[in-house]
Design a binder for these strands. Sequence first.
DNA 1: CCGATTGTTCGACAATCATAAAACAATATT
DNA 2: AATATTGTTTTATGATTGTCGAACAATCGG
Lengths: 109, 109
Amino acid sequence: MKRYPHPTADQFTLTAVLHALSDPVRLNYVQCLANLGCEQPCGAIATPVAKSTMSHHLRVLREAGIIRIRTEGTQSLTSLRWEELEARFPGVMSAVLKAVDSTDAVGKK
Amino acid sequence: MKRYPHPTADQFTLTAVLHALSDPVRLNYVQCLANLGCEQPCGAIATPVAKSTMSHHLRVLREAGIIRIRTEGTQSLTSLRWEELEARFPGVMSAVLKAVDSTDAVGKK
DNA sequence: CCGATTGTTCGACAATCATAAAACAATATT
DNA sequence: AATATTGTTTTATGATTGTCGAACAATCGG
C-alpha cells in the first residue's frame, strides 16, 4: 500500500495552487473531479496525455493541496480537498471552477 | 510613444490568468496595484528583481489581460483591468487578492 | 545639446516543466 | 502460478521560464 505525502492546509501556498491550476490538463481534471463530486480512480477521467504524464500532473495537484490520493487495491483514488481549500483561500477554487464552466479555457492550450 | 498589444476581454484565457498570477513577483505587483487603486508607474512599486526582469513580468501580466500599460513621457503607467477581469471570470481576481492579503504567500518563493 | 530618467529589447544561461516510453510494483483475476 | 489491471518511477528530451547585464530608445530638465 503506497503512502503519499500530503501537505497540511497551513502548508498550502497560493502561488502553488494557482500554478497547479494553470495547466489545462490539470484544470480539466480538477473540474471533472468537482463535477463528479466524489472520489474517483485516476483512470476514470479521460485525459489527452499518457498515464505517466498524468501521474506527474496528479503529483503536482497533490503537492499543492488540491487533491488527496489514496490507494485501494490497484487503483489510486483521487478526491478534491474542497473544504480545506475553501477554508484556506476562500472563494478561489469556487470562482475558478465557475469560470471554467463558463468558458472554453480548457483543452486547447 | 510606444504601443502595446492588449488582448480584448474575450481573448482572456483562464489558464493564462492563473499562470500569470502564479509567480510571486507578479502576484505581489498585482496586489500592490490593487491596494493603491490607481494607475502607477512601473517603478513606483518595489520589487526584488532587475528592471529588465520586471519588464518581462509586466508583459506577461499585460498579455494575460491582467494589467493595462500606457506610456506617458518616459514612464509606463500600469493599471489593473479589474472590471473586465471580473466580468470575464467573476470572483477570481477578488478571491485571489483577498487570499494574498490573508497569507504570506508572496515574497518567499 | 547634453545628461538624467524610465523602460524596453536583446542575448545568454540555469532551472523548471510537460511530455512520453520503458521498466517496475502491487494487487486482482483466472 | 500466470496474466491482467492500475498506476508509479526512471530516464530522456524539447520547450518554456525567470533571471540578469548590456545596449538601446524615448522623453524630460537643464
